[in-house]
């Protein structure tokens, strides 16, 4: 086995892993604020990609304007989803909420199918398609964009949760909703915020991968599941642990496909998920009573 092959596996793994991480963090943010797993997270990834396409083709916007536009519309979609589907619930038991998110994801996917059709669509790369060689392995400029944007988003996330009032309030909700409510934090608004933040993040993830992977109304399912795996490995933390979880998953998948067999690529992801759930349900890095933000 040559070194450049291993390097290529690792690089490919890192770039897919970064996406898993971004989607995974979206899962964790909502989980931490509300205690539910939002299975519609993958659909926001899809919305990001397809809305960018619409902004580019239909509204003829340049790429730099189309992206914020798509993120904004996805955020509004996240807001509406929380307002119309999550909040009206009388008895918000976790199982009810989870089922609602699954229903929501099917609805969003169905609407997207009607709006954009069943075809796969391509989005142009942000800065060209010429591969960059790194010691015998190659990556595309888009991979660098993915890694850079992931780092930036995680930095913003960190800043928000630790250095702003509303971020701190959201953390407070995750520790103890009732106590947070008692000290005057509007818990329902925090829940709404969490949906908006994670739908925006999902949309960003969907936009930055679309030039590499193409986009269609049903891309959200698999990416959502992989993001969920990343979040589980990271113990549902919305910080660095989920990022490491995502990267680990990406690299293991890629190495597994390259060195063992490509037939087991997805199996590897889900075996890791099961192992983590059996052996360390608190996540790879979590202490049993870890802080969950």
């Amino acid at each position: 086995m040559q070194f450049d092959q291993i390097l290529q596996y690792a690089l490919s793994g890192f770039s897919t892993g970064a996406i898993y991480a971004l989607i995974g963090i979206g899962f964790s943010i909502i989980y931490n604020a509300t205690g539910i797993i939002n299975f519609a997270q993958g659909e926001f990834v899809m919305l990001g990609g397809l809305l960018t396409l619409t902004c580019l083709d239909l509204l003829q916007l340049p790429l730099w304007a189309a992206i914020p536009c798509a993120v904004a519309v996805s955020t509004v979609a996240g807001l509406l989803f929380e307002r119309l589907a999550i909040r009206p619930l009388r008895q918000p038991t976790p199982i009810n909420l989870v089922i609602i998110t699954i229903g929501g994801s099917i609805l969003i996917r169905g609407l997207a199918m009607l709006l954009w059709g069943k075809d796969t669509h391509a989005i142009p790369a942000f800065s060209g398609d010429d591969p960059i060689a790194i010691g015998g392995a190659t990556i595309l400029p888009q991979h660098l964009w993915i890694l850079a944007i992931t780092v930036v988003i995680i930095a913003i996330n960190k800043f928000y949760f630790y250095h702003t009032i509303s971020g701190k309030a959201m953390r407070a909700c995750s520790y103890n909703r009732r106590a947070a409510g008692l000290v005057g934090i509007d818990v329902r608004r925090m829940v709404l915020f969490s949906f908006m933040i994670s739908s925006a993040m999902g949309a960003v993830a969907g936009i930055i991968v679309a030039p590499l992977t193409m986009t269609a109304y049903d891309v959200g399912v698999m990416l959502g599941l992989k993001g969920f795996c990343a979040a589980i490995i990271g113990g549902m933390s919305s910080g660095i642990a989920t990022v490491v979880g995502g990267l680990l998953l990406g690299v293991l998948e890629s190495l597994g496909a390259g060195l063992i067999s490509s037939g087991y690529k997805d199996a590897i992801a889900f075996i890791i998920l099961l192992l983590i759930l059996f052996i360390r349900p608190q996540g790879l890095f979590g202490k049993a009573d870890s802080e969950r933000v």
Binding site: Q5, Y9, L223, S254, G258, G263
Partner: peptide, 20 residues
């Protein structure tokens, strides 16, 4: 004799192996 899933988004691992 490599395979990929219908929804896979990156096949560089398989192709790197084939390149070798």
């Amino acid at each position: 004799d490599e395979v990929y899933g219908p929804k896979d988004t990156d096949m560089t691992s398989q192709l790197t192996k084939i390149r070798g």
